[in-house]
Amino acid sequence: MTTAKLFERLSRLMESQAEADKKHIKKLHEVLKKLKKRQKHLKAELEDAEGGHQQRRIKQEIEVINVQRRKGVDVYKTLKRARAEAKAAEEGSIPE
């Protein structure tokens, strides 16, 4: 395999990885938005909830979403950071 061909393949692989990362971030963002919306809705529902059982279930769900969102935000930040670093590295490697 010639160097040119190898380089072409590598860049294609990197491009598809970058594309996958982009999709991943987009999906994560989308899910986090939906979770936030659901959490907001639940908080409003909690105020109107009557009876201990219902309140307890809503509180549990809010807490579950809380943990899920926290985990999601961590992943989101990590992905964004990695993407920024990759971009910076890419820009740094371009000869002036």
Binding site: H24, L28, V67, Q68, R69, K71, G72, V75
Partner: peptide, 10 residues
């Protein structure tokens, strides 16, 4: 290969 659920699931 969608990893979002695995990342967020408790």
């Amino acid at each position: 290969g969608d990893p979002v659920h695995d990342e967020l699931a408790l």
